[in-house]
Design a binder for these strands. Structure first.
Lengths: 194, 194
DNA sequence: GGTAACATGTAAGCGGTTACATGATTAG
DNA sequence: CTAATCATGTAACCGCTTACATGTTACC
């Protein structure tokens, strides 16, 4: 489809999903196999993006088909494995996407926040519990993020500064949530002892 | 599909999606029509949840079928309109959902952050632009949120304290983002004049 | 008289999750 | 020897978005 009319290419360009650009970006940062991409995503952008293996491998094929990456088999022993490198066309496509002044709508989707929003439907003691749950969740995430920090700083040492920035935004976010929880708790009617 | 094998049970109870609970919760807070629910969502939880009319109306039917809300026609003039009220069963279901110690996984999905994460692929001046775009986005949202604040405080006066809390979390979040952007900008190599 | 807001839908498609499936290698 | 990790998939489903469709009332 989208036959090359002469001057250019299969307009996969338009059809690339955000997930594919994530894959492309991770390869650009040095991830080699699909497995490594998935792992890297989990260990870096995990709080504002996720990806599943089921998305990764088809994305790799499409990116290769588009000429943005090149893959070659590199099995380890008898275990099959395919590693990829980004092409100059791929780098161009990545940069174009990054610069694209698309709406970038801010869309979070967090059930925890939704529940908190409706917490007035609960009895005070139960609302407290919910508040604690949300607070605890952020506390947990802070621990996880701190663990990632080591890696982000190593990345920085290699010349990539922005991963550390986004990590720090994540940290700041959850610290803000916890602070808001703490502050709010003082305003709530005292919890009847359960 | 899913033919009734005799004992009844369109076990909608189990199948309720988060979106349906959002609709239920909004009715509990006083929203009456589908249209009003959609509008209320946009004006309250809009930064951590969205909903479209296409979801609202089917949700209302399913909630009514489940006995969680009751609806009646209340046209305004010749314009059709259906208004709903939550039932005691509905309140129970809402509370049960709020208390459900489900994983509450924290899942954001923000392309802006992703782009920022990959910004090292750009030239410094372009990375600056992206940083500014993300910063500006949060600045805009802060304005929107401040506008909502009036309403959240009115809601608080009516006895619902939590909407203001979640609003303040949104504010704190975007303030944190902006602060991180500002802080980071000082660490970046000076932008070559474009 | 026209635009914005009110009010409710249908149809199609797709991105993404869940569940399932397979096998090799390494570490304890 | 067993479990964890590495490594890559298929099939089915579904919630949600997008695009489209329709008509009314209120406001300037």
């Amino acid at each position: 489809m989208a036959q090359s009319t002469g001057d250019e290419g299969p307009d996969l360009t338009l059809g690339l999903t955000a997930a594919m650009y994530v894959v492309l970006g991770m390869i650009h940062l040095g991830a080699r196999s699909g497995y490594e991409i998935k792992r890297t995503v989990d260990q870096s952008i995990r709080f504002f993006w996720t990806i599943s293996p089921v998305q990764v491998y088809p994305s790799l094929r499409q990116l290769e088909q588009a000429g943005y990456i090149t893959g070659r088999a590199e099995p380890q022993g008898r275990r099959p494995r395919r590693v990829y490198e980004i092409t100059t066309a791929g780098v161009t496509a990545l940069r174009r996407w990054l610069l694209q002044a698309q709406p970038m709508p801010f869309e979070l989707r967090d059930i925890g926040m939704v529940k908190l929003f409706f917490a007035d439907a609960l009895q005070p003691s139960q609302a407290h519990e919910l508040l604690d749950a949300v607070r605890e969740r952020s506390a947990q995430l802070l621990v996880t993020l701190e663990a990632i920090r080591q890696q982000a700083e190593a990345t920085k040492a290699q010349g990539n500064l922005f991963p550390l920035l986004t990590l720090e935004m994540g940290l700041a976010f959850h610290q803000a949530i916890m602070a808001a929880c703490d502050n709010f708790e003082t305003q709530l009617p005292k919890r009847a002892h359960v």
